[in-house]
Design a protein around this nucleic acid. Structure first.
Lengths: 207, 207
DNA sequence: TTCCCTCTCGACCGAACGTTCGGTTTACTA
DNA sequence: TAGTAAACCGAACGTTCGGTCGAGAGGGAA
C-alpha cells in the first residue's frame, strides 16, 4: 500500500491499482448497503463505508449526501420494488387466493433480486423520521396483503381457524426470514427457494 | 442542592415520591433489553438506558459491568432457555417427527415467555466476540433441529421434496418472526400464537 | 500554456460515545 | 449518635462519531 518510488514529486496520491473508474452514487450505495447488512446500520461508521469502497471518508462524502440519505435510498429502492408488485395485474385481478399467492411469489422474487436492500429495510427500527417513513410504507404493503388474506378466508380458500392478521404475519415472517440466511450459491438457486417458501406457506394456510 | 432546614426531623423525612426500591442487576437488565429492542443495541446509548431506569449514567454503572456485558447476559438467558429444551425428554425420545414438533412447540413457548431476550438474541450480527459466541450457540441449536428434520424426512413423515436445511430455516424463520410483531394483548393469547404458528409450519412441511 | 471541472486527500470540527472517579446521600446497625 | 456500606450523582476522561474544509492531482478543451 505504500507509495514506493516517485518520491521526487512531493504530492503523489497512491495509485496502486491501474485505475478504477470513478465512483457513482449507485455503486457506493451498493457498497454501503453491503456493509450495513454485515455490521448493522448503527454499528457502521462512515469510515467503515469509505474503507470498504477503497477511498477516504472525505472522498466518500463527495459522492453521497450522508449516512441517513444512504439508508433512505436503500429503503426506497426496496419499497419501490414492492409497491410495483402491488400495482401489477396479477395482484388485482382474479380470486383473492390467487392474488395472494401471486403477491407472495412476486414478493419473494423481489426479496431475492433486491436482497441487500430488502434485508436492510426489514431491520429498520424507526429511530429517525427516515426510518419511520420506511416502516409506514412497509405497513401499508402488509395491510394490502392482509386484506387479500381476509378475503381469501371469506371465500373459503384459506383456513379461517386462525386470525387473518396472524396468517399474514406468519406468511411474511416465513418469506422475510430468507434474508437472514440466503446467500447465492450454485446448489440453492433462487427459484428453488421461492418455490419452497411459497409452497410451504400456502400448504400451511390452506383449509 | 440546598441543605434543607430539616435537620431536626429524625424520624420522617419528607419524601416527594413514594420511593423506589433499589435497583438490582436483573431489573436493570430487563430495562436495558427493552430499550435495546426498541432502538437497537448499537443505536442505544448508556445514557438512554439510565434515563429509562430513572437514574443517572454513573448510577447505572454502579450495578452493571458495561454495555456489552448486558448484551451477553441477555443472550445467555435466551440461549440457556433454548438449550434446556434440547435436553428435555420430549426432544430426545420417540419418532423424529414427534421430537421435531416438540422442539418447535417448546421453542415457540420460550420465545414468548422470554420474548425480549430472544428478540435481542435474534438480532445480533457478530460484530464482537461476545456476539459471535451467541451466534455460534444459536447455530448449534439449529443444527440439532436440522438433524431432526432430516431424520423425519428419512422416515417419510415430512415432505422430502425440499432440502432439510431449507425446511429447518423456514420453520425457524416462521417461529422467530413472531418476535417482530408479537405484543401481549387480551385478544391474542400466547397459546393461540403458539398453536397457530406450529400448526402452520407442520402442515406446510407434511408430505 | 492556461483554464476549469471532477475526484481525491489530510486535517480538522463539535457532538456524542462508553467509561471512570471523587464525593454525597441514604438506610441500617451498633 | 456515630459508623458503615450500598446507592447514587455531577463532572470529566479519552475516543470515535458524522460531517466539513481548503487544497492538490488529473485530464480535457481553449
Amino acid at each position: 500500500m505504500k507509495t514506493t518510488v516517485a518520491t521526487t514529486t512531493a504530492h503523489r496520491p497512491p495509485r496502486a491499482t491501474p485505475r478504477r473508474p470513478p465512483y457513482d452514487a449507485a455503486t457506493l450505495l451498493e457498497v454501503a448497503v453491503t456493509v450495513f447488512n454485515e455490521r448493522g446500520y448503527d454499528g457502521t461508521s462512515m469510515e467503515d463505508l469509505a474503507r470498504a469502497a477503497g477511498i477516504t471518508k472525505s472522498s466518500f462524502y463527495h459522492h453521497v449526501d450522508g449516512k441517513e440519505a444512504l439508508l433512505a435510498a436503500a429503503c426506497d429502492r426496496a419499497l419501490d420494488a414492492l409497491f410495483a408488485v402491488r400495482d401489477e395485474a396479477g395482484s388485482n385481478t382474479g380470486a383473492a387466493i390467487d392474488r395472494f399467492e401471486y403477491v407472495l411469489r412476486r414478493t419473494s422474487q423481489i426479496l431475492l433480486t433486491e436482497l441487500p436492500y430488502v434485508t436492510l429495510l426489514l431491520r429498520v427500527r424507526g429511530n429517525t423520521p427516515t426510518e419511520q417513513a420506511a416502516l409506514e410504507r412497509r405497513r401499508e404493503f402488509d395491510r394490502f396483503t392482509a386484506d387479500l388474506v381476509a378475503q381469501a378466508m371469506a371465500d373459503g380458500d384459506l383456513r379461517s381457524d386462525i386470525e387473518a392478521g396472524l396468517a399474514t404475519r406468519l406468511a411474511f415472517g416465513t418469506l422475510n426470514s430468507v434474508t437472514e440466511w440466503y446467500r447465492v450459491t450454485r446448489e440453492t438457486s433462487p427459484d428453488a427457494v421461492v418455490d419452497g417458501a411459497v409452497g410451504v406457506i400456502v400448504r400451511g394456510l390452506r383449509p
